[in-house]
Design a binder for these strands. Structure first.
Lengths: 161, 161
DNA sequence: TGATTGTCGTTCAGATTTGAACGACAACTC
DNA sequence: GAGTTGTCGTTCAAATCTGAACGACAATCA
């Protein structure tokens, strides 16, 4: 009754019980899963989740390289956060920086061979966690619905900035 | 083809295209939404999302108070992160600390009247963002499926620690 | 009771993120 | 081509998070 989400029940703009349940479940679950993923990656390879995501994106890019800004957009990180993480990964020998041939301002993040090997070594354990707690618990139907729902929101958020 | 998620297609433990799409959509969307929420809350009241969530939980608790550990579990924060945030909210006059009558070690976080007013003032704008980018874009059916899916994962994660 | 073990919340150092400011270059306009 | 505006990536200070260590108290058990 005192909850800020449901208090003004007369106003249709507030969240009803179903909507509130969906939202809270979404937020809590993500944080819990994120925590478990961090734990697994740290133990397996001393990597953080943002660092792992960077390696994944680079491994899938042509020539295993990507512009800083594009990479930041892909992994949803701020430019300064990406600068910091690329520096860390460079110290670890997993990524290198290269000049961009087509733009003098540009910097390319390049996955090294060591970075690729690291990813191949770590990925199975990571995927196992994602499976164990999310993917394998959902039916094909649920998986599809969730993807559709997430994409709608992602599209709306990306197009408004 | 070089993506670490799909490379070893012979191994059924890897994620196929559908699963990978679901996972990436989930992670990206959450980060984008989180970013937008932070932006809105900061502009509206100088609050962070974790701080807002703390106020919400306290507002819904009996006597508007909660034990630190329980609160930390609810908002999925580490104990030290909660200690820090409660200190910040105390400085802002939105929350107070009180002794726990039943346990000498315990600390109760208590929502002040100012905290309650702040929450009532900020909540509509916050809910509007959650609606605009997530809730209102999903059908009742999708909302229900997502909640069910998230709850399965949440349950698995909470019960294994 | 006394001893052991566990939980509570805090502290601290270190790691990471944020957002504003910046210099360097690119793109566009006239 | 000079001037304006925009983008690129980095830097910096400040804010926040993490995880291990800690002292204080609670719970359990002999």
């Amino acid at each position: 009754m005192a909850c800020a989400y449901t208090e003004a029940v007369m106003d249709p703009r507030w969240l009803d019980a179903t909507e509130m349940a969906a939202w809270h479940a979404f937020v809590s679950t993500f944080h819990l899963l994120e925590r478990r993923i961090e734990e697994q990656l740290k133990a397996a390879a001393g990597l953080t989740h943002p660092q792992y995501e960077i390696l994944v994106r680079l491994s899938a890019a042509p020539d295993r390289r990507m512009r800083m800004t594009e990479l930041a957009r892909d992994v949803v990180a701020s430019k300064s956060a990406l600068t910091y993480q690329i520096t860390q990964l460079e110290k670890a020998g997993l990524v290198e920086r290269a000049h961009c041939p087509s733009d003098e301002r540009g910097v390319l993040a390049v996955l090294t061979d060591a970075g690729m090997r690291c990813l191949e070594r770590v990925a199975p354990g990571h995927v196992e966690v994602v499976r164990a707690y999310l993917i394998d618990r959902l039916s094909r139907e649920e998986l599809h619905t969730m993807t559709t729902a997430m994409r709608k929101t992602e599209r709306a958020l990306r197009s408004s900035h």
